[in-house]
Design a binder for these strands. Sequence first.
DNA 1: CTCCATATTTGACATATCGTCAAATATGGC
DNA 2: GCCATATTTGACGATATGTCAAATATGGAG
Lengths: 217, 217
Amino acid sequence: MAKAEDIESVTAQTGRPLGPRALKTRERLMDATAELLEERSLLDISVVDIARKVGTSPATFYHYFKDVEEVTVHLADRAADEMPAVLDLIDGSWEGDAGLARARNIVDAFISHWDTHHAVLQLRNLGADRGDKRFIRIRRDALGPVLDRFAEQISEAQKAGHLPASLHPYIAAAALGSILERLSAYHKELTHFGASREDVVETCAILIFRTLTGTNS
Amino acid sequence: MAKAEDIESVTAQTGRPLGPRALKTRERLMDATAELLEERSLLDISVVDIARKVGTSPATFYHYFKDVEEVTVHLADRAADEMPAVLDLIDGSWEGDAGLARARNIVDAFISHWDTHHAVLQLRNLGADRGDKRFIRIRRDALGPVLDRFAEQISEAQKAGHLPASLHPYIAAAALGSILERLSAYHKELTHFGASREDVVETCAILIFRTLTGTNS
DNA sequence: CTCCATATTTGACATATCGTCAAATATGGC
DNA sequence: GCCATATTTGACGATATGTCAAATATGGAG
């Protein structure tokens, strides 16, 4: 599970490893990009914009990154660091009310995660769906463990006869992941329908709980 | 429900309505953009690329569109024209096996729809999630009627006591929409897990059926 | 503290795109 | 065949891209 942000892999475009000063500059370039992504589309962000914001020259940018998209790859990597915390919420019993509470916590964590990294996560999925290996790996590393646990839980529910055998556990798990990601991505738009964030959490939690356990409570 | 592609609204950047020759040129520019979107990211598509592909000059492009993103708006509009066919699949009884078969057809239609317009639909959602009014309207027009029907069906299942009252019908419907969209977007990646397209359709159909009716069959 | 090897940054440049005109050209009704 | 107007484009200044070789900063050895 080698992560792209492992120290040894942080190099200049030349392949050379970076010293402390360079690391700081690279960091500032990434931060500036993340901030610009908050306010406008990737389409409207140029290398010059980023360089200007950091108070450096475009040439410096190109010393560290091939293009702006490559910065988003590393930003996605950085966002993925939060996922272990979500995994902690998954492990444990899914029986009854405890299971439902667990589902609520997961949904809540996902929404917060997306609220914090909206633009970057959206670009990650865009890239991954387009077939970009870098983004596919990052998404798999982040989401895979979650889906694995979901799939395992679904399998158990199937063995207990609570869910039909024709359900493909991993695909069903991916479907739950889809709900989490998609609703997290646009839950704010849903509030225009008179639905609060709590409503989103509650409804989403119920659907996940029901699909993981096959029970109705 | 005024659509952006209504004839009267197809104008040059100056606001002037377009004659037959101009309409054809505009069409070719849109087609060229759609083709380019098949092979590379919007980031890597310049106005010059599109103009060259059509065998015209950049100035001509700017006569019809503000920028490349505006073309994608109209492409998204065009893709939305297919949705009425999906709506036909939704209406009718959701009881028993007929309901499950109905779900299968819907999933199948969605996956085909996304396979055909992948890049454009992805950009539509990207724009809409970012708050762009143009894309929000297009998505709402396309998905709203589907979600409305889902929500209505869920309400009925609640009244019949098959689903918990704490479920917010419209959010649950949006969750189903999320499954449809997200799995349609990356179902090809799932097949690397030994899951066929049929598996995706079947699993997705079961989940939708169960959530719409609250029954287990 | 000074010097120097090397890490880091940048100015300068050739190339390309952007976006806007006013001017050129095509069209179709008379 | 003429002309009003619909459509296209050549030309251009401004801005961005991407690559050097050269300039500057740093920190460890002496």
